[in-house]
Structure formats: structure tokens, C-alpha cells
Design a protein around this nucleic acid. Structure first.
Lengths: 149, 149
DNA sequence: TATTGTTATACTCTATAACTATA
DNA sequence: TATAGTTATAGAGTATAACAATA
């Protein structure tokens, strides 16, 4: 039997495997109980943290295509969690804000999210948890992948 | 502006963001040049490492549904990279093996995969890279998420 | 009756292009 | 002409259930 050395040292493979666990934790604590998808939750928390964001910003922050974001915003608006209003300074642009209901939901999800992370402490110590996030951020925020100039 | 403390300490959010970078590196080095999807590549390398695996094993290792795996195996078989044969000890079960062509491809992808990981060294030092994989494995292989008994 | 694997189906996600309105 | 956002469409991924073969 050949070695699994290659796959075992491939970061992407392990990110995908860890993602399965993180997704299960999300579904258990947030997705199922609150009927939210990962992208709904992330969008909600990002708008909560920034007060108002343009779709363009959210496309960047969530790594979504513009069309997909439009659909997510449609759903979140129908659910009454967000509002869309034209930006008075540039009427091409839209300002996304939370409704009172959306802000209430975001606040109520904060302790839920903390419980979710606590649940992962069965697998990762607090130090491991912090270090994992530090390394994931370093990978995500580093210089672009291609651009071999 | 409210704080992003919650999202910033949510492992799943950072796994998703890092996954974007890892996926871009995969597409650049392996996906585009060799016309392989992530699941094709992982399957190829897993079968190469184990000589023969049952679909049941691959479902577990790749976190796929059984129907999706069937479709992946169909495609990889049509491309001539794998064979399927009934297990003589239990004819319900199937043995998946690499063809000569599949084994050749797997070997040729080893240096490519190493180059891909080298490319990530612009973002992560060698020590960071190893530590990140250690923590991701710990998260992926820990005790089940639910089972609150 | 249970297990392995496949086929069928519907639903969601993703990527691209075309379109509207504003600048 | 360029940009922000939406709509339309087609392709790929995902989940569920129904099925066939074997144990």
C-alpha cells in the first residue's frame, strides 16, 4: 500500500474535512433551530457589525457571486431581517441594513454562536481554537494565489 | 458600529474563507491543468494509497452521499482512471482500483501537489502549515458533534 | 430482514451572460 | 463608456427515496 503522504500534507483536503465538522456544528446550533443557512447567518452578522453595507462589499466579504448575493438578499428581505435602500450619494448603489427584527435575531444568535464554539472545545482546547483561527486568517488574508509576475 | 467579535471567533466562518484560497490554489495547480475536480483528485489519491477501497469506504473518507459517489465513480471509470470489480468475498460489495492510467496520473500529481503546497508558503511558513494541518485534523477527527447524552 | 450499491428525482448552488439604472 | 445591481439561464452539486442484488 502506497503512502498517503501527499494527501496528508494537503491543506485543502484537511480544510474540507474540518468543514464537515464545522458545518455539522452550525446546523445543530444555528441552522436547524433558526432555519438559517450559513450564508444567511454570516450576512446577518456582517451587517450587524457594520450597520450598513453595499452588496458589493458583501460579495467580497462572503466570496459570493453578485447574482447569488441578490438572491440571498431577496430571501433575507422577504423574511423581514434586512432592508435595501438606494444610497443617496450614488443612486446606483444600495445600502443594506438590518430591520429591528434582524437586529434582534443577530443579538439572540450571539450566545448561540458562543455555545457552538464551546461545543468544539471537546475537540480543540481554547488555545488550539485561537491558534486555528489565527492560521486560517493568515491563509485567507495572505497575498493572492496566482499573480506569478 | 457593533463588533465583529462573534464572527471573528467562529471557526466555521474562517474555514470557509480559507477554503476559498485553498480552492483557488487547487484550481490553479491541479483542477484547470488536469481537468479534475477536488473530489476526483481526493478519490484518486485515496485509492492510490490503499490499492483497493469499497464505495462504502470512499463515502466515509470523502464525506459524500452514496449516490454522489456513484456518479463520481462513473465519471472516473469513463475517463479510464479506475476500475470497479465485484468483491469475491461479498458480491454485494465493489472493489475500486486504479487502472494503469489512473496510477500514472496519481504519480504525476504528487510533485504538482507539493508545488501547490509550496505556493501556500507565501502565506504560511512551513511550521504554520504543519500546525494548521495538525489542528484541522484534530477538529475533523475528534468526537462526534452531536450525541449530547 | 439488513446491507451494498445504483438509479431517479427534485432542490440548491454556482457561473455566465444579458439587462436596467445611474454615473 | 463604466459601474452597481438584478434577472435569466444552464450546469454542477446535494439530498432523499426507491430500487436491485446479495447476504
Amino acid at each position: 500500500m502506497a503512502s498517503r503522504a501527499v494527501l496528508d500534507t494537503t491543506v485543502g483536503f484537511h480544510i474540507a474535512r474540518a468543514g464537515v465538522v464545522a458545518d455539522a456544528a452550525f446546523d445543530l446550533h444555528i441552522g436547524k433551530p433558526h432555519d438559517l443557512r450559513r450564508v444567511d447567518y454570516s450576512l446577518l452578522m456582517l451587517v450587524a457589525a457594520s450597520e450598513r453595507l453595499a452588496p458589493k462589499d458583501l460579495v467580497q466579504l462572503l466570496s459570493l457571486s453578485a447574482p447569488k448575493l441578490s438572491m440571498v438578499l431577496d430571501r433575507m428581505q422577504e423574511l423581514g431581517f434586512i432592508d435595501r435602500a438606494p444610497n443617496p450619494l450614488d443612486r446606483r448603489s444600495v445600502q443594506v441594513t438590518l430591520t429591528a427584527q434582524g437586529a434582534k435575531l443577530a443579538r439572540s444568535l450571539e450566545p448561540v454562536a458562543r455555545r457552538m464554539e464551546q461545543g468544539l472545545k471537546k475537540r480543540l482546547s481554547a488555545a488550539d481554537h485561537a491558534e486555528l483561527i489565527r492560521l486560517l486568517r493568515k491563509l485567507a488574508d495572505g497575498p493572492p494565489v496566482k499573480a506569478r509576475t
